Simulated assay, not measured.
Amino acid sequence: MTNGSVPTAGSGPGEHAERGVVDLLGLLAYAELVAFFRTAEHAELAPTLEAKGKLAGLAAGEYANHERLYTGLVQRGADPEEAMRPFVAPLDAWHARTEPQDWLESLVKIYVGLGIAGDFYRKVAELTDEGTRELATSAVADTQRAEFIAPQVRAAVEADPALGGRLSLWARRLVGEALSQAQSVAASRMDLAVLLAGGAQEDTEQHGDGSGSGDLATVSRMFATLTDAHNTRLAAMGLGS
């Protein structure tokens, strides 16, 4: 199976869709791997041993998700290393641009930043086959993050209301950076862009000159539908939208 993003002359919708699924799983697999490393790093900022342990547990969960996605790629006949490689630069750049300055910012990043990205991946996965959809959905679930992080941030904001404004601005920045990163990926991966467009191959190929205008608009529209989950996370942490 070919899993690059440049279509061959005989490529059909089915081949685009299959390569798009491999792209999605490769993106998710690397996202979970880097989330493991970053969450483990954030644990060093934790003020208590209990909090360090909780974040270490969250990091372990991210790595378990990575392993499931890695296995899913192998089962599809894809090379996981090749599937993940195109997403290393954009995801690393997103993390570099959103480096938290303290413990609370790190918590908001883990909950809001990874949460909005997970919402987006879940929405894309809805366009795939049942097996891929179930694998992706289980990998991006954030229940454990919510149970630990939301009460921590809410308690800090209640104790010092001035934190609320700063952390709300930080949350908005995280979402903006996540949208920018998703647009960058969509513009560079044609088969993933086809998947984002719900299989609208003709529309995607119309913008195949590198402008990516149709792909960016599709990503923007998809992000606009994720506001409910995002606002729920903010409210759980005691932050305004």
Rank of each mutant, 00 (worst) to 15 (best):
A159S: 14
L167C: 07
V34G: 08
A59H: 11
E130W: 09
D160H: 10
A171G: 11
P13K: 01
P47D: 02
T132C: 14
G115T: 04
E134Y: 01
S11C: 13
M222P: 07
R19F: 02
R145N: 10
Q206P: 00
V157Y: 02
D191K: 12
A178M: 01
L174A: 05
L226F: 02
L73A: 01
K123C: 09
E32S: 09
A236D: 15
Y63A: 14
V112A: 05
E81A: 14
F87E: 05
A83C: 00
S106Q: 08
P90D: 00
E82F: 07
L55T: 13
M237G: 08
Q152R: 15
L107P: 15
A193Q: 01
E177N: 08
E147F: 07
S211T: 15
K52P: 01
A51Y: 03
G238W: 01
D92V: 14
Q144M: 06
P90Y: 00
N65K: 10
L216R: 09
L49E: 11
L114E: 15
A78R: 08
L169N: 11
P7M: 03
L69D: 03
L24V: 12
Q201K: 12
L114T: 15
A217S: 11
Y111G: 01
D79Y: 03
A156Y: 07
D23P: 06
A136S: 09
A125C: 11
A159F: 03
W103G: 03
D160K: 15
E41D: 13
G115V: 03
E81I: 08
A40P: 00
R221S: 03
T204L: 05
L216E: 06
R76K: 14
